[in-house]
């Protein structure tokens, strides 16, 4: 398994990387950790003519708090996300999900930006990004813009990221202080990717009713999706075993559920409900 030939450039800055991307006429690709790209290149499923290495740009690394958000540089590795004190304090669900990506070695190299930009529907971060209202900072030739993650994932391995732009950082909304959160994953036993991964965040008001709820799922569908139906069903309700079970039955409503020889559509729908129910029970009962 050997990639096709390509030329290699190490970009010295974000601006240079953008310029090089532009010059490659859509034939160039950014190389960060390489853990999504290199496997595809080894199978010759993708054959970029140029790789623009941004892996060493330190300005794309790190975690900082900005008001009610945590901003994480695109090149921050899964391991750094998982173990960073700010993430553990403010976004424990992101820390938990990052700690479940791939394996120890993959987490040491794979990056949060690469993971989101690659848009593998079975990756673990897309659901977390949706549930935490992630905003993506994207730099292109015309400067920087901020895009919501909602609408970013267009299909398997397809995003709204323009060919000549760079995802530089991702910010996540810090949920209300009294909210609880979890990421529950049913990992494919071979690949470790999510057959289903449910990210749920919820908070109750002083009377015990659900006042804040965000649920998103990856793994089962073409793209990660936001479980609007479940949220609507529970918003403002007093959570009971019964209401949670009923709401969880709607977990597959908002996704285009896929199928393969390991897990059929019917089984995936079922898993969506089971894992959503388990997540909500953890948070609300």
């Amino acid at each position: 398994m050997i990639p096709n030939q390509f030329s290699y450039v190490r970009a010295e800055s974000i601006d240079e990387a953008i310029r090089l991307l532009h010059e490659s006429n859509g034939e160039g690709k950014l190389l960060a950790g390489g853990h999504s790209l290199i496997p595809l290149m080894k199978f010759r499923l993708t054959t970029p003519s140029t790789l623009i290495d941004i892996g060493h740009l330190s300005e794309l690394r790190g975690v900082r708090k900005a008001e009610n958000r945590l901003v994480i540089g695109a090149l921050t590795t899964h391991r750094e996300v998982h173990s960073h004190p700010l993430v553990q304090e403010h976004l424990p669900v992101l820390a938990k999900a990052a700690g479940q990506i791939g394996d120890l070695q993959v987490r040491n190299r794979g990056t949060i930006g690469g993971n989101l930009a690659h848009a593998d529907p079975a990756a673990d971060l897309p659901a977390v990004a949706l549930a935490l209202d992630a905003m993506l900072e994207i730099q292109g030739e015309d400067g920087a813009e901020i895009a919501s993650v909602d609408g970013f994932f267009l299909g398997p391995l397809v995003t709204a990221l323009p060919d000549t732009s760079i995802l530089t950082s991702v910010s996540f909304l810090i949920p209300p202080a009294h909210a609880k959160s979890t990421y529950l994953k049913y990992a494919h036993p071979a690949s470790g990717y999510a057959v289903v991964g449910v990210c749920a965040i919820a908070a109750k008001d002083p009377d015990g009713a659900v006042e804040f709820i965000r649920i998103a799922i990856n793994g089962v569908a073409d793209v990660a999706y936001h479980c609007v139906a479940v949220e609507q069903k529970l918003q403002g309700q007093l959570p009971t075993e019964e209401t949670i079970r009923e709401a969880a039955l709607l977990a597959a409503e908002d996704g285009e559920i896929g199928s393969d020889h390991f897990a059929s559509e019917e089984y995936r729908r079922h898993l969506c409900s089971v894992y959503t129910e388990r997540a909500l029970r953890d948070l609300l009962l």
Binding site: H188, P189, A190, S191, H261
Partner: peptide, 27 residues
Amino acid sequence: WEGAVYDENGQLLSGTFMDYTMPKARF
């Protein structure tokens, strides 16, 4: 877990470690 799964055309569907489940330590 293990099993070589062919489709009706004789294509091996579980042809990599991504979809052929090798026993792992945590099992």
